[in-house]
Amino acid sequence: MKILVGYKRVVDYNVRIQVKPDGSGVVSDGVKLSPNPFDEIALEEALRLREKGVASEVVVVGIGPTDLQAHLRNGLAMGANRAIHVATSDAVQPLTAARVLLKLVQKEQPGLVILGKQAIDDDCNQTGQMLAALWDRPQATFASKVEIGEDKARVTREVDAGLETLEVDLPAVITTDLRLNEPRFIKLPDIMKAKSKPIEILELASLGVEPGDHLKTLHYAPPPGRSKGVMVKDVAELVAALKSKGLV
């Protein structure tokens, strides 16, 4: 079985995000970029399935500008067999990403697609669901445990009420939650070996996908700073103050 893994590059989780002064976006110039943590978990899961003999090949996919290849190389160093780079200089919204992934699914015919449940930059949490709908295959999102059987996957998912277990027919889309696994450290020899692993480059346009403009960004602004508090004399004054603000 072949597994396709989405591998997005995002601003590192340790970076304190700053909004550009003109409100057109967040500052990414000179900012540390890293693999999306949920996608690292997705790749780790795929690699473990390959190591168990369940999967035979793991392909990482990235969509973005030319310098994305260093990032895909990281996925190859972690252990993916090969990478596909869908090249575009435009920002990629979830529906566009899902449409691109659908094209790659049709081309590669994977038995399983594993994606992060969301990317930590826009937190959309949409691409996996959209891909499943476009592909017309089952989805199991927020996975905290994945077991692959004969033509079926049993997926434990984290929901508000606790743990829910789904069984889905394969091929399917699985999206990963934080507690599914702990991604491995990359070995130095594997970094060197990754240099010679193949990265296939496809222009976004060549896939017949238009970079859609489904979401319009009006303005970026940092969360307002905390304003100064007021001291109240007693509970009665507190209740009155909360009432006057319409909070109780």
């Binding site: 260093a70 160093a77 990359i186 130095l188 970094i191 060197m192």
Partner: peptide, 8 residues
């Protein structure tokens, strides 16, 4: 390659 080594 150097960057990848340093990052890891």
């Amino acid at each position: 390659t150097i960057d990848a080594v340093l990052e890891e």
